[in-house]
Design a protein around this nucleic acid. Structure first.
Lengths: 205, 205
DNA sequence: GTCTATAAATCGATAGAC
DNA sequence: GTCTATCGATTTATAGAC
């Protein structure tokens, strides 16, 4: 390794610092509070330096969205260890909600702020190799498919069932974030009730 | 267009004109696009004039939220004519979703933008006489209570059931707004499926 | 009540020195 | 690569003339 590699590392290092600072700012004050100057102050560089690593403020926000999706996928992943597919659905719902509650501003940035973010990252923003947004959804849909294959669910439409589950859990999580007082009880407890109610409609009787 | 038209509009009251213009701006470009100058341009007054009717930009947004809640309540109201309480729940869900789809930016302003808006309008912002936010929720909760009283629902917790329904419908509506492509099918069709699934969990068997 | 004018702050992004 | 300096645009809100 030589000078070139060291410079490469330094560049990557600063890029990560920028993203970390940006994430802290968004977490603290929402996406609207994210400004180049605040980032510059936080990392103790000049505002102009940021433009050597990111083309614009938008690009930083997009990268935060991508990272947020990756975090969500990481938070969901341990649910794969649950053997029973129906219980796995419940666990996914719990973990999804726990993530939203522990990172409300990240969740808000991804799912509630600008639709363009979610669309660009989730929709097709895949730059070939990775797409944690689609992966997160695919994980849920696969699990629903396994519930059907195992005979636990009636032969309902897989996509429809997965999307209803997502919508139900998202509804609980986003209302908890927007207006906690409106939803009585703990988020996990509520989302369990949501899973119960929805799964009752899906299960064979 | 000129003096004559402006004087005509004066009859409607400048305060209402400001709100109407603000609403058009928010509908067109989201809450972030709402600026005093744009309002001033739209109503053909100077920016300073607006401050004679509203203390700040925030107060205008709050008033838009209140008006949005009132519109939502108005959109829900006809559901009261449905005699069967269970069918009435379905109808409320449909009308709620139809409102969100026809006024996505209004819906976004109320439920998805700044949590402070929803909190201040819904939470306790009632200035004594009116509170369309609480009324909207109360309408749903009363209907659920009537489902239980009529023996259609198992004796479940009324608030919990009402809040799960709200969360489920909100989840569908908000995901449709944020990422239409992610939810297959028409919003009303999806929300009917959501009602079916949730109600199945609530109905006596 | 309405206007003009402007204060005071903040922003994204760029140019050029080093 | 980094900084200083700044452009140019935008914002909220106010002060004072009429």
């Amino acid at each position: 390794m030589g000078i070139a590699e060291r410079k490469e590392r330094q560049k990557a290092g600063l890029r990560d610092q920028i993203l970390a600072a940006a994430r802290r700012i968004v977490l603290a004050g929402g996406y609207g509070a994210l400004t180049m100057r605040k980032i510059a102050d936080a990392i103790e560089y000049s505002p102009g330096t940021i433009y050597l690593h990111f083309k614009s403020r938008e690009e930083i926000a997009l990268e935060l969205c991508r990272a947020g999706f990756a975090m969500l996928l990481g938070a969901l992943a341990p649910a794969a260890a649950v053997p029973d597919p129906v219980e796995r659905v419940r666990e996914i719902a719990r973990r999804y909600t726990a993530f939203a509650m522990s990172e409300p501003e990240t969740y808000r940035l991804i799912f509630m702020d600008d639709p363009a973010f979610m669309r660009e990252v989730f929709g097709d923003g895949a730059e070939g190799d990775e797409d944690p947004g689609a992966d997160s959804y695919a994980f849920l849909e696969q699990t629903v498919a396994q519930c059907i294959a195992a005979g636990a669910f009636r032969p309902i439409d897989t996509r429809r069932a997965a999307q209803l589950l997502w919508a139900g859990v998202h509804g609980v999580a986003s209302l908890k974030i927007s207006c906690d007082e409106m939803m009585d009880g703990d988020a996990i407890e509520i989302v369990d009730a949501m899973s119960d109610a929805l799964l009752t409609g899906f299960l064979t009787r």
